[in-house]
Design a protein around this nucleic acid. Structure first.
Lengths: 152, 152
DNA sequence: CCAGACACTTGACCGATTCAAGAAAAGGCG
DNA sequence: CGCCTTTTCTTGAATCGGTCAAGTGTCTGG
C-alpha cells in the first residue's frame, strides 16, 4: 500500500523540528515543512500549498507564504530566487550548495560546493567590502533536454 | 552652458551601434542605449525610462521594455536579475563578470572574474550536463554601509 | 480551562512585467 | 522624393508573484 499507514510519521517529525526551533506547532506548518522535505526541494509556494493541502484539507496561499517566511527565518528552510522563476524552497542543509537550472525545462539540480573552500567565495574586491555569501546559479541544459535539442 | 553643445555625440554613437547590430534607429532606442551606457550600469527599466525621457521628451514604460528587450537580444545590453530587485541593465562587455550586492543599501558593484578560468564555472556535475553559464551574486555590505552598521 | 498571543482566512492591494490594438514613423523601392 | 510595408511606439488593460490589513480562530503557558 502506498497511502497512509505510517503517513503521520513525517508529521510527528515535523512537529519535533518546529518545537526544537521554538515555534508553535500547527497543522499548516507541519504540512508545509513536510512538503518541503519530501519533495527533495525546489518547489514554489503555490506547489507547496497544493501538497500541504492534501494533508490539511485547506490552506490559503497567504498562510503558505507566512509559514514559509517563518520557517525560513527559523533556519529550517532555505529560499532561492532564480531569475524568471517564482521563489523556490528547500530544506536548509547549511552546506551552501548552489543550483543548476535547465534553460529548456526549468528543472533545478543541486550543485555541491567544496565546503569552506568554495573558490567562488573569493571575489576580487577591496578589503572594505564585507562579503557574506555567494550565490551561484549555473545555466545550461539538463541531460534530457540536451538530448532532445537538435545540436546546430 | 550645460545643455546641448556636443550633447548629441553619444546619440550618434548609439545610432552607429544600433545600425551595426542591424536594428532600426529610433529616438527611444538611441536614448535608452545611451542611458544604459552613460550610467555605468545596473539601472532598472523605470530609471532608464526617466533618463531617456530627458532626451526624447516622452517615452512610455512599455517602449522602454521593448527597447531593452531588443537591445538585449541584439547583444548590446546585458540584463541581470538580483533577488528582491527589479531587473537591472548594463552595457554588454562580454567579460562574464559578476555582481556584489549590498544587503543594506542595495547598491551593485561589478566583480571581475578571471577570464576563461573562472573557477566558479566548473560545477561538480555529471558529464551529460551542458553548463553554458555561471551567474554569481555576492551578498554583503558595501564599505559605506559597513561603516554605518553597528558591529555586534 | 482560560486568557492572551500568535496563526490562519479573506480580500484588497502593489510592483514589475507582459499582452493587445491601434497610431506613428523608419527605410527600401520605384 | 514620396509611397508602402514593416517595425516600433502609445495607451490601456491584464497577469503574476507576493505583501498588507482586518477579523476570526486556535495554540500554549499559567
Amino acid at each position: 500500500m502506498t497511502t497512509s499507514g505510517t503517513a503521520d510519521e513525517p508529521m510527528a517529525l515535523a512537529a519535533e523540528r518546529l518545537r526544537a526551533a521554538g515555534m508553535r506547532v500547527t497543522a499548516p506548518r507541519m504540512a508545509v515543512l513536510t512538503a518541503v522535505s519530501d519533495s527533495g526541494g525546489h518547489l514554489d509556494a503555490e506547489t507547496l500549498r497544493e501538497r500541504a493541502q492534501r494533508v490539511t484539507g485547506r490552506l490559503s496561499l497567504q498562510a503558505t507564504y507566512n509559514v514559509l517566511r517563518a520557517l525560513t527565518d527559523a533556519g529550517l528552510v532555505r529560499s532561492t530566487q532564480i531569475a524568471g522563476h517564482p521563489t523556490r524552497y528547500e530544506t536548509e542543509r547549511h552546506d551552501n550548495h548552489h543550483h543548476f537550472v535547465c534553460r529548456a525545462c526549468g528543472s533545478i539540480r543541486d550543485v555541491e560546493c567544496v565546503v569552506g573552500a568554495a573558490p567562488c567565495m573569493e571575489p576580487r574586491l577591496p578589503e572594505e567590502y564585507d562579503t557574506q555569501e555567494a550565490a551561484v546559479t549555473f545555466w545550461g541544459l539538463c541531460p534530457g533536454c540536451r538530448a532532445a535539442t537538435p545540436v546546430p
